[in-house]
Measured scan of single mutants.
Amino acid sequence: GCWSIEHVEQYLGTDELPKNDLITYLQKNADAAFLRHWKLTGTNKSIRKNRNCSQLIAAYKDFCEHGT
C-alpha cells in the first residue's frame, strides 16, 4: 500500500525509504500522463539524478490525492 505522506517527507532519501523505492512505486502505479507531468519517465537512475527529494515528495502527494 501507500506510505503516509508524513513518512515520505521524513524518510525519503534515507535507508528507510530510498528514492529508488518511491520512483519504482510511482512508475508501477501511476499512469503515463502523471509520469510525464512529473518527469518520472525513463530509467530509475536518470530520475534519481534529475529529481530531488522535494520534487518526488510533491509528485507522491499529488498521486495520493488524485490517485489513478
Rank of each mutant, 00 (worst) to 15 (best):
V8G: 01
K39W: 05
I47K: 06
G13K: 01
S46F: 07
G13C: 03
N20Q: 14
C64N: 09
K39R: 13
S46T: 11
Y11E: 04
E9Q: 12
L40C: 03
A59R: 00
T43R: 12
Q27V: 13
S46C: 08
Q55F: 10
R36G: 10
N50A: 12
I5Q: 07
C64T: 10
N29T: 12
N44D: 08
E65T: 15
N44G: 10
H7T: 11
I57F: 12
T24K: 13
S4R: 07
D15L: 12
K28A: 10
A33K: 13
W3F: 06
S4I: 03
Y25R: 02
N29C: 08
H66P: 12
L56E: 00
Q10K: 14
V8S: 01
Y11L: 10
H7G: 03
S46I: 06
K39G: 09
C64K: 11
T41N: 12
K39N: 04
V8T: 03
V8Q: 00
T43G: 09
S4L: 05
D15N: 15
Q10A: 09
N20W: 08
K49N: 10
A59Q: 00
T41I: 12
W38Q: 04
L56R: 00
Q27D: 02
L56N: 00
C53T: 10
L22T: 01
K61F: 03
A59N: 02
W38V: 02
C53H: 07
E9M: 13
N50H: 15
L35P: 00
T43V: 07
H37P: 02
L35V: 04
K28I: 05
L35E: 01
P18V: 06
W38F: 04
A30C: 11
K49Q: 07
N52I: 04
S4G: 05
H37V: 09
C53K: 09
I57D: 03
N50M: 05
T43N: 14
L40T: 00
N50Q: 12
N29G: 04
I47R: 05
D31E: 10
L35T: 03
D21F: 08
R48K: 14
I23G: 00
K19W: 05
N29H: 14
Y11N: 14
T41V: 13
A30I: 01
F63M: 04
E16W: 09
H66K: 14
W38P: 00
A33P: 13
T14W: 02
N44M: 13
A33Q: 12
L26W: 00
F34Y: 04
S54K: 14
G42T: 05
R36S: 11
K45D: 08
L17P: 01
T24A: 13
D31Q: 09
V8D: 02
K49M: 05
T41W: 10
K19F: 08
Y60F: 08
F63Y: 13
L35Y: 02
R51A: 08
I5P: 07
Q55P: 03
E9F: 05
L22I: 15
L17V: 03
G67M: 09
N44Y: 11
C2E: 13
E65P: 05
N29F: 08
I57K: 14
E65Y: 10
D31H: 12
A32N: 11
I47P: 06
I47F: 03
Y11D: 03
L12V: 06
T41C: 13
K19R: 06
N44L: 14
A32D: 14
K61A: 08
I57S: 07
G67W: 14
L22K: 00
A33T: 13
K19N: 04
N52C: 07
G67T: 12
L56Y: 02
Q55K: 09
I5H: 04
E6D: 04
E9K: 15
S54G: 11
N52K: 11
F63I: 03
N50T: 09
A59T: 05
K49P: 04
H66E: 11
S46G: 08
D62N: 08
P18R: 14
G13S: 03
T14V: 02
K19Y: 07
D15H: 14
Y11W: 10
L17M: 10
G13A: 04
A33D: 13
K49H: 15
P18Q: 07
I57L: 15
D31T: 14
L12A: 05
H37E: 14
Y25G: 01
E6M: 09
D21P: 03
L17I: 03
A32Q: 12
L22H: 01
T68A: 13
I57Y: 09
H7D: 04
K61P: 00
N29Y: 14
Y60M: 04
K61I: 11
S4C: 07
H7W: 08
N20M: 14
L40Y: 02
C53S: 09
S4F: 02
E6K: 12
T41D: 10
A30Y: 00
V8N: 02
I5A: 08
K45L: 08
V8A: 03
W38G: 01
S54Y: 09
A30Q: 00
Q27P: 00
Q27C: 10
D15Q: 15
G13D: 05
N29S: 09
D15R: 15
D31L: 02
S46V: 08
E9G: 06
Q27K: 15
D62E: 11
T14K: 13
N44R: 13
L17F: 11
Y25A: 03
L26C: 01
Q27G: 04
R51T: 12
E65C: 08
C53W: 04
I57P: 01
I57C: 12
C53I: 09
D15T: 14
C53P: 05
S54Q: 12
I23S: 01
S4P: 06
R36K: 12
Y25I: 03
F63T: 00
G42M: 05
N52E: 08
S4N: 09
D15A: 14
L40Q: 00
